[in-house]
């Protein structure tokens, strides 16, 4: 591999990284420390504040809305992670062979990811309207319903819509991440497997999958963390309603901080979220890491 020249002044190297370092220190590390302090006060949006120790943490553990938000987030993550991976994997299998049209297919499948959850949520908002929306129109034409489902004002239909949206959006990203790994699999392995008479599924399971450990790990981590931090689609489609039945953790934080003005309490919940996300990343990383990575 390319050797690093030792004649370069280290100081210049450090200076080159200073802008990035400053930004991160100012807008990530500092707020994090500040968050710990704030979470132990009764900081309001406006006005003076007092130190309250761990009172906020005690409060939120008894706050049914917070607990419900956690439950919703976990259930939501559990529901969508599998389909996102499976669909993404299927798309990757379909488009990895560089046949005629596979580049076009990849473009189409990745398009929802590019457009983004935000704008797609607005579209879906219009299409899920009872009686007039495109989704209901389609269902009525297909004879499945009478077209009057009010998707966005009931908990379960709302969650169904959001889950479908997210799978549609995310599977393209999974596809791309897996494609990178798949195209690195040497042809000879497939050939010798075919020689040995292995069927397609077995080949996939025994040969491809193990070699995809890293891309799989990455796509799962991104998918799970993304689901934990979900906000846009929930706020845009259901505003967390009815009531707070479709309010995930980040939306809870936002509402408590900026609608109820209880910044201290919101920040306490937010810090718990940081811990949870860090734990999940670390756990997944350890579980899925390639045992031979260090040998390379």
């Amino acid at each position: 591999m390319a050797a690093k020249s030792t004649t370069k002044p280290g100081r210049l190297g450090f200076m080159l990284t200073v802008p990035s370092l400053l930004l991160v220190l100012a807008l990530v590390i500092l707020p994090l420390g500040y968050a710990v302090v704030i979470s132990m006060t009764d900081f309001p949006l406006v006005g003076s504040y007092h130190y309250v120790g761990l009172a906020n943490y005690r409060t939120i553990f008894h706050d049914s809305q917070f607990l419900h938000a956690i439950l919703l987030t976990v259930v939501y993550t559990a529901i969508v992670t599998g389909p996102i991976f499976v669909v993404g994997y299927g798309l990757a299998m379909l488009t990895r062979s560089n046949r005629r049209g596979s580049t076009l297919l990849r473009t189409m499948f990745f398009l929802p990811y590019i457009v983004g959850l935000t704008f797609e949520s607005f579209i879906l908002y219009v299409e899920l309207q009872p009686d007039s929306g495109g989704v209901n129109f389609l269902l009525r034409i297909l004879g499945l319903t009478d077209g009057s489902t009010a998707w966005l004002v009931h908990t379960v239909p709302g969650m169904v819509a959001i889950c479908v949206l997210v799978v549609w959006f995310s599977s393209g990203l999974t596809m791309v991440l897996l494609l990178g790994g798949m195209q690195g699999v040497p042809r000879e392995l497939y050939e010798s497997a075919a020689l040995d008479g292995a069927g397609r599924w077995r080949t996939e399971l025994r040969i491809t999958l193990p070699l995809l450990r890293q891309p799989i790990a990455l796509s799962l981590i991104l998918s799970v963390i993304g689901s934990f931090l979900a906000f846009n689609q929930f706020e845009i489609l259901t505003q967390g309603g009815p009531g707070t039945s479709t309010t995930p953790v980040v939306l809870w934080i936002y509402q408590v901080a900026f609608t109820q003005g209880l910044i201290g309490k919101a920040t306490a919940g937010a810090l718990l979220l940081v811990v949870a996300v860090a734990a999940i990343s670390a756990g997944q990383f350890i579980l899925l890491r390639d045992p031979e990575a260090n040998a390379r």
Binding site: V28, L229, A257, V274, V277, S281
Partner: peptide, 16 residues
Amino acid sequence: TVMIPFQAILTPLFIE
């Protein structure tokens, strides 16, 4: 920074 999602430090970030 990857481990610290901005959603979770939104409140102190806003104040800062």
